[in-house]
């Protein structure tokens, strides 16, 4: 089953083209890396998948729904982490994660568990987000996604600001999410970071992609690189 299906997807910001005819298939449960230089269109593609960037033309289906027409139903099933963390500075880490969990209707205690899994215990969880380091803030944002348990993770440079230990922790979390059936799309300009994690890498350049269709990449079910940990450690 396809979690994401884009055909000839075109999107503009005013008159400036952001996506220029994207063909992309992503299988449910797959981990896909979007790789390309700054300004290639990775973020725009993630936002289009999340329904934040409406298409001017082309077709898009995400988790079987139209990302714009069915936005509300779809967005409850998606977790998007952008360049910015989307946190409220005046709230504590726990309050931020708890708000995300409650909005998603997550089970009680999901916020505490998610923070714990990201290595943020009770002490850091109680601190206002404004007092946390950049890496800690990134982990709080990831915990907010984890607490929601989305079916589709859309992550824009999720390793940014994380040290080697927490990069590996994040990779493990995403692999575990994939094992539970969640689909993960990671955008990164670093050649090795996302590729080490992903089962398939899609090159993004000039608002279009190469290797976006399933038949263009490795067949579904291709084993992940066994040297994941070593590779993550290397790029860190």
């Amino acid at each position: 089953m396809l979690a994401v299906r884009f055909r000839r997807a075109v999107a503009f910001a005013g008159r400036y083209p952001l996506l220029a005819g994207v063909d992309l298939d992503i299988q449910a449960g797959e981990i896909v890396a979007l790789r390309g230089p700054n300004g290639a269109g990775k973020t725009s593609l993630l936002r289009a998948i999340g329904g934040l960037l409406p298409l001017s033309s082309g077709e898009a289906t995400v988790l079987g729904l139209d990302p714009v027409a069915d936005a509300r139903a779809l967005r409850r099933r998606i977790g998007l982490l952008g360049h910015r963390n989307g946190l409220y500075d005046d709230l504590s880490a726990l309050e931020n994660v708890r708000f995300a969990a409650r909005v998603a209707g997550a089970r009680k205690g999901a916020a505490e568990v998610a923070l714990e899994r990201l290595g943020l215990g009770a002490r850091l969880g109680a601190m206002p987000v404004s007092r946390l380091s950049a890496g800690q803030r990134r982990r709080v944002a990831l915990a907010a996604l984890l607490a929601r348990e989305p079916e589709l993770w859309l992550l824009d440079e999720p390793h940014a600001g994380l040290d080697a230990t927490h990069r590996r922790l994040l990779d493990d979390l995403l692999l575990a999410a994939s094992d539970r059936g969640a689909t993960v799309v990671v955008a990164s300009h670093e050649a090795t970071t996302a590729a080490a994690l992903a089962g398939r890498t899609v090159e993004v350049a000039g608002g279009t992609v190469t290797g976006g269709l399933i038949e263009a990449g490795p067949p579904p079910g291709t084993p992940r690189p066994t040297a994941l940990v070593e590779a993550s450690a290397y790029v860190a």
Binding site: A73, L80, H83, G86, Y88, D89, A100, V103
Partner: peptide, 18 residues
């Protein structure tokens, strides 16, 4: 302003809140 400060407005939109 509290929604715009750290890109929280995107999170709000993506949350699926009514």
């Amino acid at each position: 302003a509290i929604e715009a400060a750290d890109g929280a407005s995107d999170n709000m939109r993506m949350s699926g809140l009514d």
